[in-house]
Nucleic acid binder design. Sequence first.
RNA 1: GCUGUUGUAGCUCAGCGGUAGAGCACUUCCUUGGUAAGGAAGAGGUCAUGGGUUCAAGUCCCAUCAACAGCUCCA
Length: 646
Amino acid sequence: MIHITFPDGSVREYAKGITGFQLAESISPRLAAEVLAIGVNGVTLDLSRPIENDATIQLYKWDDPEGKHAYWHSSAHLMAEALQELYPGIKFGIGPAIENGFYYDVDPGEAVIKESDLPAIEAKMAALAASKELIVRKEISKQEALDFFKQKGDEYKVELISDLTDGTISFYSQGDFTDLCRGPHLQNTGEIKAIKLLSVAGAYWRGDEKRKQLTRIYGITFPKKKMLDEYLAFLEEAKKRDHRKVGKELELFTFSQAVGAGLPLWLPKGTILRNRLEDFLKRIQKRFGYQQVITPHIGQKELWVTSGHYAKYGKDSFQPIHTPQEGEEFLLKPMNCPHHCEIYKAFPHSYKDLPIRYAEFGTVYRYEQSGELHGLTRVRGFTQDDAHIFCRPDQLKDEFLKVMDIIFIIFNALDFKNFEAQISLRDPNDREKYIGSDENWEKAERAIVEACEEKGLKANVVLGEAAFYGPKLDFMVKDAIGRRWQLGTIQVDYNLPERFDLEYTGADNQKHRPVMIHRAPFGSMERFVAVLIEHTGGKFPLWLTPEQAVVLPISEKFNEYAHQVAQQLDLKDIRVSVDDRNEKIGRKIRDNELKRIPYLLIVGEKEMEAGVVAVRKQGEGDQGAKTVDAFAADINAEVEKMMKVF
RNA sequence: GCUGUUGUAGCUCAGCGGUAGAGCACUUCCUUGGUAAGGAAGAGGUCAUGGGUUCAAGUCCCAUCAACAGCUCCA
């Protein structure tokens, strides 16, 4: 007999060799029907694996990542099996489960697999799943494994096996398909009910661009058809919110081939939005003791030679600008830090002056690879909501806490309710590659960890992800439909103060090196606006939106009154326009609703005579009549209320 | 940067060797309306750019530029 400890701490006795599935059965048939994998002493295994010794176990269902992982991994195998039947001789690379579904990299030889072939593969998968093939695990020696795939002619698998250690290799088989795999897997293919293959793409073998490109097929599966339908609806929703599409529809920004790839042009409405965001952040920063500065878009090449960036990125950047003057070279600035360091250096500093916080909406230019460019989230010219804090080492934690406060205010104001953080620390095994003293690093790392704890912030600590010049804290938000985006960042820097020879005079009358903090709560204006669009679907909060209200005259007879109303509202700083097209009111309402304008003000005979407007609120319909002044007061009160919160 | 796909009217797209098309948007006219699409007429395109093949090229081929997807990358 063996003792099995359950997650709730209870212990039960079972016969030696019991499988995970039998364990689940012993608890309830329903659990047995839902369980997908089992964790045995922290290792996820197949349900069919016998348990030989005392163990602490956890049964994984669909809602557990481990359960989904097994499910999708088996789905990848199912797809491979289908491919093998449809494309005899096809060779297989790797086929893992991913965050949403799975993929398999395959080499179909002469054949070409196109998006239009996917339904046929799906149908084959469904047929194979319906036959409920058992998935069987077999441990195998390295030699046998090599022989098997050599004979099959699957050179990719042979290569993978060559890198494995004998004794750790296992095969999984179902029907006529056998794959090299660590598992775990489902017990049989029949559990896979709803199947959708999503796309085909090229991917290099082992991610190496010098090696052969394989065909990668992405798919997703679910235990219930309804779940698949919901997922497909989610993809549709994501498409509708795509900031590139919404940005065009709402006339926020555009790109021009003539201007160049990755160089966004902000349209008037997008500019209003962006200016509102900038003003908002400036207001908060002022309260937190920041000073705005402005620096040029270029600087002498030497500046980045000094900072060390030229050596590291110079070759892959926009190249130096040459002037008529012999030997002069300027660079478009890829970051604002050196300029701010020079501002710091313009005066001598006492320890009493610190911290000094210089903020700038600084536009920078980075030559991103052409294939990386994507809407506003990855561009070649963008504006960072940048600031550099120069402080004493003992002020580091306090400054971190303050920056976090700013970030929380922003997230709160823009209704990002779900966020988490990642703390990137040094690789403890490779201290050589980091600049700065051990003492400072430890102090900084401790400051970050403690700051997160004090704020009750859920933070994921990752070792080895720190920049060579300092540890950092990155923020990830979840948007309204659950997607994760990386936004703000706070980074400690020991490198630049050193390289720029920054100093302050301490209480001991000695020169000391300040610590520098880089921080950008939005990340960049471009990226933030993109995320905000995808988060809100283009329905921006009232204080931010480029157009707060539009006046809709019922007929042309009321156009004059409509313009009077608009003028009156404009005097009260409300962003308003008039839709005086020769169209029926229903049409005007529809068009302006689609423009996501929060308030539609309908004016006809009744309103004109009474000197009022009929208010229609976005998504809520008719709100009744109000005087123009009352409406203006309400709007401004609503905005004011929101602004007060932060 | 690599691989693949795509580029036709302001937008969304059809046409795929033989005189440039639709819907929406736009202009004009009719209509003057009451809470999510009123009607008619009209205007608008060197078919991304540059070469080539052909009697003939949006249509086939090559290059460049750009977009999209994936890979690789992101100070």
